[in-house]
Design a protein around this nucleic acid. Sequence first.
DNA 1: AATTGAAATGCAACAGGATTGCAAATTTAC
DNA 2: GTAAATTTGCAATCCTGTTGCATTTCAATT
Lengths: 136, 136
Amino acid sequence: MLGSAAELLEQKNIKPTAMRQLVLDILRNNPQAISLLEIEQQLGHVDRSTVFRTLKTFQENCIIHKIDDGTGATKFALCSEGCSCNLGDLHAHFYCTKCGQTTCLKDHLIEQPVLPEGFNFESANYVIKGICADCR
Amino acid sequence: MLGSAAELLEQKNIKPTAMRQLVLDILRNNPQAISLLEIEQQLGHVDRSTVFRTLKTFQENCIIHKIDDGTGATKFALCSEGCSCNLGDLHAHFYCTKCGQTTCLKDHLIEQPVLPEGFNFESANYVIKGICADCR
DNA sequence: AATTGAAATGCAACAGGATTGCAAATTTAC
DNA sequence: GTAAATTTGCAATCCTGTTGCATTTCAATT
Ligand SMILES: [Mn+2]
Ligand SMILES: [Mn+2]
Ligand SMILES: [Zn+2]
Ligand SMILES: [Zn+2]
């Protein structure tokens, strides 16, 4: 893993502002996917829209990917090194119905699906729901 | 397929009120998954919360299943005859990024996933995104 | 160092969807 | 027919995401 958040940002040609470094640090330190609200709370007194736009920038540059786990609040997780956010990087996610945590299942890659004639694949969101190991 | 909506409801031990029959008819006549708002609009002057609770009842009784296609608005589609909403009935869905339609891919069944040690499977939401046959 | 233009931020407001409390109406049970 | 339970309608609220705009920050240029 790269050293500082600033280094990672510069490597992607993103100006490493204070806010961006803080948000990225949270994402890096968090093993699970987290929501905008959770980031906001971990940071304390920050502006929601700034964090929102920060996350948008990160997504556009494939630093993080988003997961729609069905809770209504989009979750975000760090991309792996070398990720290009294409098929081959896409993986399933696990949502624990007990603790509400959302986990990247990096080993569970999403394969090119067989679709009806005329349908064209672009991307996918695969969320598996159940009870996680910590909650049993 | 069963005859009237009323019959289908009675078979599931649900009181076939006027509203429930109307909502069920819309769901049966619609080949694609639809949102609460779309149902509301097709019905004209109905109350959103009543439709909302109707859909909740239908879900609880496995008459319909819900799909979170990432648009922010939950979609609903009729369950197949004999559906128990368990593994074996679960299937993927397709969201067209051009026309916004969400389609049941009934042939694309969701298999029991291989999960990390200690994780327990309950259900899944698998949405494939791309361009549908009508939009090419 | 001052100027200036671009980028980022903070604040406030708004949009859209989901959800609830509660009273009125309808249905069912006795 | 009366009482209890269910369903409905209406209004209000919550929650998340998103945008407009003024202000600030930053970096390049003179
Ligand atoms: Mn992930
Ligand atoms: Mn379906
Ligand atoms: Zn858990
Ligand atoms: Zn389409």
